[in-house]
Design a protein around this nucleic acid. Structure first.
Length: 720
DNA sequence: ACGTCTACCGTTTTT
DNA sequence: CGGTAGACGT
């Protein structure tokens, strides 16, 4: 292969990163600096120039999207299939290992993956069986506790505590839950990683094999790795395997779900023969946007240090808009988008970013009103939808009768007179005989331990599952799915529902059969096609919206915006307590993570960035008078510009807005929404007023102290 | 077994 | 304020 093809399109730093020959390379890649490109070209370099065999390479990402993109780009650069390399997500590769060595991992060949929803159900059931009061000990918290322990590589026996009730209670739940999973052949997401780690750690023949096989490990988004992922990487690279990692400590925003920024910070000391290369040239944003981003992130203390720069010109200043309230915020954004489109540009170039999902509703209303097409990211994925999960639970149960989670999900759907009472009896039987629910149900049905009607019903259910599975024979996947939907009468159940929902459900089920038809099980030649499909459904929950190809405005949280870029970006709700969020303001570490989130948001913008905050916001049904976010204040004045309310050519948001407040004499004429200065409190915005003449009072939201009522006659306010 | 009422809660999310 | 989960009643 021609080396120039690999290197020509790269800048100096990128070229270094691609060609450097050390045992451990850290590429600190700023936002928009071409990190995926470096990763892909480095792999090409390793193969084409250093002569590494493709099967000796492993490349790990966090999301399916990233791994697909990497595969794709490698293939188009190398002009060959990437099939012999191990490229995938942490969970995908862990799954692959566990499938290949299920016995060694102490798992049945038929093991199933639990998604978070399934996991919570199982935990709830376990806790009920332990008669733990769910009001006092929320199952959600138990799940969080268990996953956190697993992310840190701790089994129940490894958890140290001095008898405090919290830890001991949840450790017990962990123990029982793990037991239930073992019996049912169930593996949750955290367990995939943990088990894959234990597998390599404890089975010497496998450790030797993989440590020898993999000669170069590449990891994307290293700042997001958690404890167990790190340990797994360390294990694989502890012999001769070289490692290249790419990441950006300034974009570490997932600390709250176990990611450890220290992993990237300490990398240099943890490995021998290391080299750090910084990619600081940004190809995405204008100079002003980068200045803003650099200035904000400079306020963080725990940084490895990096400064983005660009060859591009300064571009427009960043616009800061003080909206009166969230409706006006939404209206402003809608107007700007209209303007943008009228200039001949497209909706899909615009993104509205916010800190929390709750903010999307008002924004959505106004876009709808203005007939601006939009797409909201987040929400239920395809394979997470109730009807899809129920159908797949039937299939799971057919293929694996041990699967108690699946059994419970479907035993009374559609309703077949097997209510809580009947199920309790089955569960009791299962505990008594120490069997699965399926086996217990058989006993219960045979011995007719339920009411005659329920017994018959249970018998029919067992038969149904059994018979349907028999009928599968060697039918193609999609026909197995179709058969399941019909045999279980799920189609009729959903047809009975009223209105739009029924239609959506019907479509989703049709789409499920379709997904099965298109599914390619070649990645797992040793697995039954359906087993592979079920794993695929859990590991790649799919997209969440249908009309994604339409030209529409992109709305999403700041978190989901990571990795994306848009010519026009709005960051809404730039207010203290909302962003930085109230829950993350008190601890320095959490605040720094919020600031990194702001950095991520700012660096999404290519051409133009708007920061919007409100003077007044309804939050949980209460009026609040938020102060402007510190992150706006951290941006130097030289690159930002206030959008003046009175220069807006539009109808006022409220009839009273813009109306004169009569303060008695001509020197005291103010409007709602106007910015004023007070000798003691500094600048603020007029929110409200009451009374006339010498009794006139105004409410002003001050940047320094928040909202205050002042007597207009005494307050010595000046227009700004 | 299903619908209605109430009490509670309320960042961020991928796999 | 608005969604939801679980209790409670028909």
């Amino acid at each position: 292969m021609d080396v120039s093809l690999i290197l020509d399109s790269l800048n100096k730093a990128q070229r270094d990163a691609v060609t450097t020959n050390v045992s451990a390379l850290l590429v600190l890649a700023g936002a928009g600096s071409g990190k995926t490109r470096v990763l892909v070209h480095r792999i090409a370099w390793l193969i084409a120039v250093e002569g590494l065999a493709p099967h000796a390479i492993m490349a790990v990402t966090f999301t399916n999207k990233a791994s697909k993109e990497m595969k794709h780009r490698i293939e188009s650069l190398l002009g060959r299939s990437s099939g012999d390399m191990w490229i995938g997500t942490f969970h995908g590769l862990a799954h692959r290992l566990l499938r290949a060595h299920a016995r060694d991992a102490d798992l049945p060949d038929t093991f199933q993956i639990l998604d978070s929803d399934d996991q919570l159900r199982v935990i709830k059931r376990v806790m009920k069986e332990m008669t733990i009061d769910e009001n006092e000990w929320p199952a959600k918290q138990a799940m969080w506790f268990i996953n956190q322990q697993k992310d840190e590589g701790r089994r129940p026996k490894d958890i140290r505590h001095q008898g405090d009730l919290f830890t001991s209670t949840y450790t017990n739940v962990y123990y029982q839950y793990q037991n239930a999973c073992q019996v049912g052949g169930l593996v949750d997401f955290a367990e995939l990683l943990f088990k894959a780690y234990e597998l390599i750690r404890d089975k010497q023949h496998l450790r030797d094999h993989y440590q020898e096989r993999f000669q170069h490990l590449l990891v994307d988004e290293f700042q997001d790795t958690n404890g167990i992922q790190y340990a797994w990487i360390k294990l694989l690279t502890s012999k001769s395997c070289k490692i290249s990692i790419v990441g950006d400590d300034d974009q570490s925003i997932y600390g709250w779900r176990g990611a450890k920024i220290e992993n990237i910070q300490k990398f240099e000391n943890e490995y021998d023969d290391t080299k750090i290369i910084k990619l600081e040239q940004n190809y995405r944003s204008t100079g002003n946007i980068l200045k803003a981003a650099n200035a904000v992130i400079a306020n963080n203390l725990e940084r490895m240090g990096k400064n983005l720069w660009t060859d591009d010109n300064e571009g427009e200043p960043i616009s800061v808009y003080a909206a009166f309230n969230e409706q006006e915020e939404a209206r402003f954004i809608a107007n700007q988008i209209k303007d943008w489109v009228e200039q001949g540009k497209s909706y899909s170039e615009c993104a509205i970013l916010y800190r929390s999902n709750a903010q999307s509703r008002v924004l959505e209303e106004f876009l709808l009103q203005r007939q601006i097409p939009y797409r909201i990211y987040g929400g239920l994925k395809f394979f997470e939808r109730a009807e899809v999960k129920t159908t797949l639970a039937y299939v799971r149960l057919m293929y694996n009768r041990q699967d108690d989670a699946a059994f419970e999900r479907v035993v009374n759907v559609p309703a077949r007179a097997l209510g809580p009472k009947s199920i309790a009896i089955i569960r009791e039987k299962a505990r008594e005989n120490n069997t699965t629910l399926w086996q217990a149900a058989q006993v219960v049905a045979e011995e007719k331990l339920l009411t005659p009607k329920a017994s018959q019903s249970l018998f029919n259910f067992l038969n149904l599952v059994h018979q349907c599975f028999e009928d599968f024979n060697d039918l193609p996947l999609s026909e197995q799915i179709q058969l399941t939907i019909e045999a279980t009468s799920l189609d009729q159940l959903y047809a009975k529902e009223k209105g739009e929902k029924a239609l959506a459900r019907k479509e989703n089920l049709a789409e499920l059969a379709n997904a099965a038809r298109e599914f390619d099980s070649d990645d797992y030649p040793d697995l039954l096609p359906m087993t592979a499909f079920l794993a695929h459904a859990s590991l790649e929950a799919g997209d969440n919206q249908a009309q994604q190809y339409e030209d529409c405005v992109q709305m999403m949280t700041l978190h989901s915006a990571k990795g994306l870029e848009f010519p026009l970006v709005f960051m809404a709700g730039m207010e203290e307590k909302l962003f930085p969020h109230m829950m993350s303001m008190d601890e320095p570490d959490k605040l720094e993570e919020e600031r990194r989130l702001a950095y991520v948001g700012i660096t999404r913008a290519m051409k133009k960035l708007y920061l919007i905050h409100t003077e007044k916001r309804r939050l949980y049904g209460k009026e609040t008078y938020p102060r402007i976010s510190r992150f706006i204040k951290e941006i130097p004045d030289s690159v930002k510009q206030d959008v003046r309310l009175n220069s807006q050519i539009e109808q006022p948001a409220f009839s009273q807005m813009g109306s004169q407040i009569n303060g008695g004499d001509d020197s005291n004429q103010f409007r709602l929404g106007q910015t004023v200065a007070h000798p003691k409190f500094g600048n603020g915005v007029i929110l409200n007023h009451e009374g006339d003449g010498s009794q006139a009072r105004v409410q002003v939201n001050f940047d320094s102290v928040g909202a205050k009522w002042l007597m207009l006659a005494y307050a010595r306010l000046e227009a700004v």
